[in-house]
Design a protein around this nucleic acid. Structure first.
Lengths: 233, 233
DNA sequence: CGCGTTGTTGACGAGTATCAACTATTGTGG
DNA sequence: CCACAATAGTTGATACTCGTCAACAACGCG
């Protein structure tokens, strides 16, 4: 169990965000935070929070990959985000979460009681500023997803996801990529079915943009074309 | 030209938000804000801000309806939100806006210089709190849109929009509704084409869920069914 | 009134969902 | 360690939804 947050400020844990939660926070200030969090250890498929459960904590991902999902009455599932080390989760506008967060891998998460956390925010301007920046980033990420879902074809959406993973997943490079999620997860993230996802992968392979050894191991053969398909503007 | 923000705190101007920007702010504090905004008058189809123009201001809608759009390289347009009186616009994570904001009607908008506005935020806790609440609402709205685009069929997306309008548009009731936007705007908001939007409306009419006199004048005949189609959970 | 814009409707085709069969992978107990 | 079952992924056939193209209707405006 990790009992020290300071590692979270190092780039190797937070490849994704220009704004990690603890960026620019002094050792002394960090020690204050160290006192008030509990570390949660998760196995693959464990739930961190359930849809409609009371929003008692906010969370900072220390290791592992998680997903944020929302399930409709009809049973349709939409994945709203994948969470990587350094990412933050805790947005709620009522007392309850409107999402579930499930772990895809073994993971460690720092959990802060909401009230205590926001109290500390009030007298650590840097922390508050980071929170605001993260919120804005999440918002812009959501807009990107709206654009992708509204405007793109299946194989373009896959490229959109792959680009996100390249940018955000620890250990990912321009050429090699490990998918932590299943085809169904990808489908539910991109508003597709798993069959369509499968076919879209096959198409990208045939187009020689990617190659796969293991199903979860992807090689990028043509990054420029990948970018082009992924990006609308 | 409106030169007084106090009207913005009244419910009749802000039917939509549980959190208007100026909610809970004293007359005295409000007068401080009154000194630093300029009022912008817009005609229908005028642009308030352009994609990639520098983000110099933040805006609060006083009257009228506007839309937030983003145009991709391919020329396809995604509308990210419609803005109603009381709504706030100004999110940016660089120096420039990544969206355009266009007016659908004649409109009045209060424009605050970013820096001055955020300075005032720093010593008006209520204002800052309202900002944060608005940001969270916008975020949740974006998630709703992701769900709609990812999981819903054309006529369900229309219902999703109609429910939003019932809740947010000034003067809208459970039974009568005026659309301020064109079919193309609706299409670009919901990730459809205008033809599909047209057909979806026809379908809802045939299902006796809505009726239309004037094209922009919609009667809700079966609100329960509308809600059911609109809402995933 | 004529003209341009916007909306509607139809015919058709492209893209995706659905259903089903099959293959590959993972996990379990003997 | 193997056999088997369960799960995940792929591929094909078919149906459905939505996009595209085209014709037409309704509306707004000079």
């Amino acid at each position: 169990m990790t009992s020290d947050l300071s590692s979270m400020r190092r780039g190797d844990y937070c490849p994704s965000m220009d704004s990690s939660l603890f960026h620019g926070i002094s050792e002394q200030e960090l020690s204050e935070l160290n006192g008030i969090f509990t570390s949660v250890a998760l196995e693959a498929n464990d739930y961190l929070v359930h849809q409609q459960s009371p929003a008692t904590h906010v969370y900072n991902i220390m290791s592992g990959t998680l997903l944020v999902e929302r399930i409709g009455l009809s049973g349709r599932r939409q994945i709203l985000a994948f969470l990587f080390p350094g990412d933050f989760f805790g947005f709620a506008h009522n007392q309850s979460f409107e999402f579930s967060v499930q772990s895809l891998t073994t993971a460690n998460v720092a959990a802060f009681k909401r009230k205590e956390f926001f109290n500390i925010c009030d007298h650590l301007p840097n922390l508050k500023h980071n929170m605001e920046e993260i919120t804005t980033n999440v918002l812009f990420h959501a807009f990107d997803q709206v654009f992708a879902l509204g405007q793109k074809k299946a194989h373009e959406r896959i490229c959109f996801l792959l680009m996100q993973l390249i940018q955000r997943q620890p250990g990912a490079t321009d050429e090699q990529l490990v998918l932590p999620m299943t085809r169904r997860d990808i489908a539910d993230y991109l508003g597709l079915t798993n069959e369509t996802v499968s076919r879209a992968f096959s198409k990208l392979i045939k187009m020689e943009i990617i190659a796969i050894d293991n199903i979860y191991n992807i090689k990028i053969l043509n990054l420029d074309e990948l970018k082009h398909l992924a990006s609308p503007d």
